[in-house]
Design a protein around this nucleic acid. Structure first.
Lengths: 199, 199
DNA sequence: CCTACCGATCGGTAGG
DNA sequence: CCTACCGATCGGTAGG
C-alpha cells in the first residue's frame, strides 16, 4: 500500500551508487570502477548496484552528470551573482582554483580525468564529456567577450582567453595529483592574472 | 651454434610488442591494453607477448620508457642545438606544439595520458611517470632560469614559466584529442608567446 | 615463441 | 535488492 517508501529508498540507493562511482572514478578512472568493486564497497550485491541503471555505460553517464553538477555547484554557483564580464571571470577562476586546491573528490577533477580517459574512445560517454567541456569553454568565452566589449580586457580573441584558463586548470590539477605539488594552486593564480591581463 | 640470430629476433619481438603497446596506450590508456589484445593484434600468442617482460607492469614500464624516448626525440632533440636560454625555449616549444599537432601517436601525447591515468594509483608506473614529468619540468625551468639571468626574460620565477608551458601543452592536447579542435595548436602558439613575454 | 591451462574477475541476467 | 549463475576475458604459468 505504500509505494512511496520503496520509491524513495530506491532513489537513495541509486544516489549512493552514483556518489561512490564518482569518488572512485576521480582516482582510477570511470572504466576501472567495476560493479563488483562498488558492490563490495557499498555492502551490496552486484545486481543491486547495476540494477537501477541497467548497464555500466548508463551508470557512467549518471556519474558524469553528477560530477558536472558538483563542478558547477563548486565553481559556477559561487560566481554566478558577480557582474558579467571581468568580475565574474575573476570570481569563476577564484572558485575554480579553490576547488582544485581543496580536493573535493579524492582523485582531483573528475572532468579532467574523464576527458583524458575517453578522448580516444568512441561512445556516448566520450560525447557527453566532450559536450560538457565544450559548454564550459563557451561559457568562459562568452564571459570574456563581455569583458572585451566592456573594455575590461584588451581586444583579444575571447576563445584564446577561455583556452588559456582551461589549460591553467589542467596544469594545476596534474601538478597536484601527480606530484602533490603544493605550489600548483599558487602558480595557477598567477597564471590566471596573466591570462586576464591583470598583472 | 648461433645464439646471435635468436637473440636479435628476440629483441625485435620485444620491440614490436613495445611499439604496439605505446600506440594502443595513447588511445585507451596503459591499463586498458591487454595482453590478449596485443597478441591478437600482433598475430602472436599471449605467452609470446608477455614472456619477454615477465609481467604486465614490466611491459608498462618498458612502454613508458619508449614513449619518453619518442617524446625527447621529437621535442628536445630538434631544439638541443639552439643557444641555451630564450632561443632554446622557443625551439623546444615550437617542436612541442608541432609534435602535438602531428599526432605522432594515434591518441595524442602518451605522457599526458599516462599522467592522468596513474596519478591516482600508487605503484612503480606512477612513480616513473612522475619522475619523467618532473625532470621535464626541471629542464624547462633551468632553461627559463638561463633566460632570466641573460636578461632575455623579466625577473620572473622560472618555475612559473615552466608551469605555464606545461599547462599550455596539456590544453592543446585535450582540445585536439577530445574535441578535434584544429585551432588548438594555433592557440597554444599564442599562449606560448605570452608565457615567454614575447608579445 | 607455441599450446593448453589456471583461478579470478569482468559485465550482465534469471528468478524470486 | 538478493542468490546463483552465464560466457568472456583478465594476467599469468607449465611444459615443451
Amino acid at each position: 500500500m505504500s509505494p512511496r517508501r520503496s520509491a524513495i529508498a530506491a532513489k537513495a540507493t541509486r544516489q549512493a551508487v552514483i556518489e561512490e562511482t564518482v569518488s572512485r572514478a576521480s582516482l582510477a578512472g570511470l572504466e576501472s570502477v567495476s560493479i563488483g568493486g562498488l558492490a563490495d564497497g557499498l555492502g551490496m550485491s552486484k545486481a543491486g548496484v547495476i540494477g537501477p541503471f541497467g548497464s555500466k555505460e548508463a551508470l557512467q553517464l549518471a556519474a558524469l552528470e553528477r560530477a558536472i553538477e558538483i563542478f558547477l555547484g563548486e565553481v559556477w554557483e559561487p560566481a554566478a551573482d558577480a557582474a558579467p564580464g571581468l568580475d565574474r571571470l575573476r570570481a569563476v577562476t577564484d572558485a575554480w582554483l579553490d576547488y582544485l586546491g581543496r580536493d573535493v573528490l579524492p582523485g582531483g577533477c573528475f572532468l579532467t580525468q574523464a576527458a583524458c580517459e575517453f578522448d580516444g574512445r568512441p561512445g556516448r560517454v566520450k560525447e557527453a564529456v566532450e559536450r560538457a567541456l565544450t559548454r564550459w569553454q563557451w561559457l568562459l568565452e562568452a564571459e570574456a567577450q563581455t569583458a572585451v566589449s566592456a573594455g575590461e580586457l584588451p581586444r583579444v580573441d575571447p576563445g584564446q582567453v577561455a583556452f588559456e584558463l582551461g589549460a591553467i586548470a589542467q596544469g594545476v590539477n596534474q601538478a597536484r595529483q601527480l606530484r602533490g605539488d603544493e605550489l600548483a594552486v599558487q602558480r595557477g593564480r598567477r597564471a590566471v592574472l596573466r591570462a586576464l591581463y591583470l598583472d
